[in-house]
Every structure is written in structure tokens, then in C-alpha cells.
């Protein structure tokens, strides 16, 4: 298959082309898996998320419109929501299985193939990591719990024994700080 755009591949997926979904997998599965692993913290659940994401791509009627943003952002939004669905289900279901029982797979490591894209990705990771270090520990915690662990503002407030308004204000300040430093770092690169 020639080098088709992601949008064109999605259109072919709508027509039931399995080779198109396979090509999307080859392009994006590593990012999806890595993101899911960051959210879920173990291989078993990360694998489940990848299966659900590509099943969703296969079955969804929603059209991806390249005019509205990058495919990767669209896919990551979908991956995050599915990852958090799985995490919340596990939290609710913990009488049957504790996510603490699911251990990280020590065999995972940074891939050494496709070094150019990995290098670019690592640069981006360094940028956000550098910006995040400017946050106070409570600000880092609210980002971790909200973005990566899928807790609601209400749940985070309850955990910390503080008003929701305090959590919202902390989140707002964290985002402003991150934005300021991301803009500054972009200028340095």
C-alpha cells in the first residue's frame, strides 16, 4: 500500500479494509501501547487498551477530519478515554481483581528501532518533563490524578480533604505554569 495519509486510511477502514487498519496499527500502536502502559501501569491492561482502541477505530462511525487537528491527538484522546474506562472499571471491580496484583512487566524497555522517531519523541518527553518540574508537588499530583489516573475533581478533592474549588484553582494554576514554560522551552529549541 502506498504511503497514504492517516485520514485516507481511516476512510478505507470505513470501507472494511483490514489492510488499512493493519497499517494504522503499524504506524501508531507503539504510541497507543506506551500511553496505555503509562496510565494503567501494567502490560495486561495496556494490551487490553490497545485491542479496544483498534476495535474502536474499526467500528466507530465517527469521521476523523484532518482539518480539525492531528490524527495522533485524536487517537491519544481516544486512547486516554479508553484507558481511563479500563482503570475505573478495575477500581469499581476491585473486589474481584486488584490492580495492585497486576505487576509491571520488567521486560519492557525503550525500543531501539526507528531511532529517529524515538529521538524526536524523547525530545518531546524531555520538554514536558522539564516543564512539569516547575510545578509544585500538589500541582503535579492533581495533573497525575486527573490526567493519568482518571479521577474526577470531586474525587481528588475528597482524597485531599479539601474543597473542589481549591483543586480547580490548583489545576488552573498548574496549566498556566505549564503553558508558560512550554512556550519558553519551545523558544529555546
Amino acid at each position: 500500500m502506498p504511503n497514504l495519509s492517516d485520514g485516507e486510511l481511516i476512510r478505507q477502514v470505513r470501507d472494511g479494509r483490514k489492510d488499512a487498519i493493519e497499517q494504522l496499527y503499524d504506524r501508531h500502536a507503539r504510541i497507543v501501547y506506551s500511553f496505555a502502559f503509562r496510565v494503567c501501569g501494567n502490560e495486561t491492561m495496556a494490551r487490553e487498551v490497545v485491542q479496544l482502541v483498534f476495535l474502536r477505530l474499526w467500528t466507530t462511525k465517527a469521521e476523523f477530519d484532518s482539518g480539525k487537528g492531528a490524527f495522533s491527538s485524536w487517537l491519544i484522546t481516544m486512547t486516554r478515554n479508553i484507558s481511563i474506562d479500563v482503570l475505573r472499571r478495575e477500581r469499581r471491580h476491585q473486589s474481584m481483581v486488584s490492580i495492585d496484583q497486576l505487576e509491571d512487566n520488567p521486560g519492557n524497555s525503550v525500543s531501539d528501532d526507528d531511532p529517529e522517531s524515538i529521538l524526536m519523541r524523547n525530545d518531546r518527553q524531555e520538554v514536558i518533563a522539564t516543564a512539569s518540574r516547575r510545578l509544585s508537588p500538589p500541582q503535579q499530583r492533581v495533573i497525575e490524578l486527573l490526567y493519568w489516573k482518571g479521577y474526577t475533581l470531586q474525587e481528588i478533592a475528597k482524597m485531599g480533604g479539601e474543597p473542589v474549588g481549591t483543586v480547580k484553582n490548583r489545576l488552573h494554576q498548574a496549566l498556566k505554569t505549564l503553558r508558560r514554560h512550554l512556550q519558553g522551552l519551545r523558544g529555546e529549541l
Binding site: 500502536a29 507503539r30 504510541i31 501501547y33 506506551s34 500511553f35 502502559f37 503509562r38 491519544i76 486516554r80 521486560g107 519492557n108 524497555s109 525503550v110 525500543s111 524515538i118 519523541r121 524523547n122 518531546r124 518527553q125 520538554v127 514536558i128 518533563a129 512539569s132 495533573i143 490526567y147 493519568w148 505549564l178 512550554l182
Partner: peptide, 11 residues
Amino acid sequence: RLADDAEIIEL
């Protein structure tokens, strides 16, 4: 940009 904080790992 928060998504960039996920380390790329082997598939």
C-alpha cells in the same frame, strides 16, 4: 502536550 510524558516502550 501532557501525553508526551509517556515513555515510548517496546510493543
